[in-house]
């Protein structure tokens, strides 16, 4: 019987776009069933870290290890398709839906992974149950929905993959404060329901900390602070300095 440990370990990675160094010796760990938040303002390397995990950007140094159902995989040699196939889903920054496809088609496309196709019906029902709005609009083109609805669809699409590990890149981008709160709540609920391991990159730290177990602060491509609880992050000087200017 395979155990159900699902974790991600990023071990000392460097990454660069050409000559521009973006990540420097970044290490972090997302333990099984944890929700870990990666805090940082724009341009500090949050998205690049996500891209390194998904195989879009190859680290020049270090390793990314994913443990899926107790089995360890080195992501360095894998293509994005293989990484997704392991059960790692990304909700990309800016949602990136397929705007000219309907809501339902977007969801079904999310289930392209062979292992997810077996559960397509249950997952679809669950998505429509969790986000009734999507059920109402399943025939509508995704591009014609509001920002909040699109974010829900992006989340739901990632869930259709039947993932073990969920990466969420800046879910708050372009949303009103109320919708940000709702989106964060939704991520928290889904995490519990699917028993997911979640890594979320976010700049809105008050919202993110509501569901986070732990967190890291990334500044100029380096992990500057590791908070072992939401409280620790809350009372951290660095965060105050960065977010509140104190």
């Amino acid at each position: 019987m395979a155990n159900s440990t699902n974790s991600i370990t990023v071990d000392g990675i460097d990454a660069a776009y050409g000559a521009v160094r973006v990540l420097e010796n970044v290490s972090l760990r997302v333990g099984s069933g944890e929700t870990v938040v990666l805090l940082g303002t724009n341009g500090n390397g949050k998205s690049t870290l996500m891209k390194c995990i998904m195989g879009w950007v190859r680290p020049t140094k270090g390793k990314v290890i994913a443990e899926i159902d107790g089995e360890k995989h080195d992501l360095a040699g894998l293509t994005t398709e293989q990484i997704v196939d392991l059960g790692i889903a990304l909700v990309p920054e800016g949602r990136r839906l397929f705007p000219r496809q309907t809501v339902e088609e977007n969801l079904l496309l999310g289930a392209s992974r062979p292992k997810a196709r077996a559960h397509i019906k249950t997952n679809l029902d669950f998505c429509f149950e969790t986000f009734p709005r999507l059920a109402e609009r399943k025939g509508q083109l995704a591009g014609s929905m509001s920002g909040g609805e699109q974010q829900m669809l992006a989340l739901a699409r990632a869930l259709m993959l039947n993932p073990r590990i969920l990466l969420v890149d800046e879910p708050s981008v372009g949303l009103s404060p109320l919708l940000v709160a709702r989106t964060i709540d939704a991520i928290g609920q889904l995490k519990t329901h699917f028993n997911l391991t979640v890594l979320m990159a976010e700049q809105n730290f008050t919202q993110a900390l509501r569901i986070a177990d732990r967190g890291y602060v990334i500044v100029h491509g380096k992990i500057e602070f590791e908070g072992n609880s939401a409280d620790e992050l809350n009372n951290n000087d660095l965060i105050r300095q960065f977010y509140l200017g104190m």
Binding site: W56, T80, L90, P92, R96, L109, G110, S112
Partner: peptide, 8 residues
């Protein structure tokens, strides 16, 4: 890219 992330 989004298609890849969805496993298409």
């Amino acid at each position: 890219l989004a298609a890849e992330a969805s496993g298409v």
